[in-house]
Amino acid sequence: MPHSPAVEVRGLVKSYDGRTVVDGLDLTAEAGRVTAVLGPNGAGKTTTVECCEGLRSPDAGRVRVLGLDPVADGAALRPRVGVMLQDGGLPSGVRARDVLDHVARMYAHPASTDALADRLGLGAFARTTVRRLSGGQRQRLALAVAVVGRPRVVFLDEPSAGMDPQARLAVWDLVRELRDEGVAVILTTHLMEEAEDLADHVVVVDHGRVLAEGTVADLLAGARADDARPGAPGDPRTTLVVRTERPVDAADLRRALGDGLAVEQRSATSLAVTGAVGPRTLADVTAWLAAHDVLATRLDLGRRTLEDVFLDLTGRTLR
């Protein structure tokens, strides 16, 4: 039998009232991997996963989950797919634990609801109705509901929204465990940290299309086409972000640093030095600051983050 990915989307198109939300999108997600669909609000992430979940029918293109059509083969597919919706989808008048037990009853061999409740800390609010839960508690319950049927494919739409840091770590642990058990996990997010820490494969989406994809390392290595690539192959492309107590002149610093480095004014008191940043560069920048009697309030030296890549791809303007 030829290898087929857990989720395969080809040329997906979906419009609402003549407005195209997904515009020829391709997506592949493998079993035993976490695939993050990363994009700004309105990029088409939720519509894409809803087409994979059988909740919406594509206008054009082909969607296959475990080799099946999510709409036509829904009955065969639903027992093997877990879903966490962005808006929860939990009945508001029902107690938290009753919701989990109820959904478990839909499966012949569900996971232990006791173990799952323990794992995600649902015990503290087991007898609270959904409408009285905090955002983070709802998210944890929704995740438990998504995995209680022991699915082979899990779709998580913005799983960490509204969670406190402790809950987020518990969720990320569970997601990693699912992956290690061979489950295909597809999550949408606009949290860079989430994609960077969790995803084996990142698909950056905007305006209903894929802008870039690959591992986090691939995306970080792939520089903007219009940037000259500094240094020898393997030279880490680095960014030095300098925050200052008062405004400074970026152009003057750029001249002081010499060739091979670019200086970008990010705000009145924030500069980014990019290129072949080395030990000498750091000394030069601080010397220049000393010469101008300006105190640096913060120096961040590091590789480009996924956030930099993301902003480069989707643009820095608000929309």
Partner: peptide, 10 residues
């Protein structure tokens, strides 16, 4: 609240 959609995926 999305309950109809969630239950439709189970």
């Amino acid at each position: 609240n999305g309950v109809l959609r969630l239950m439709a995926t189970t």
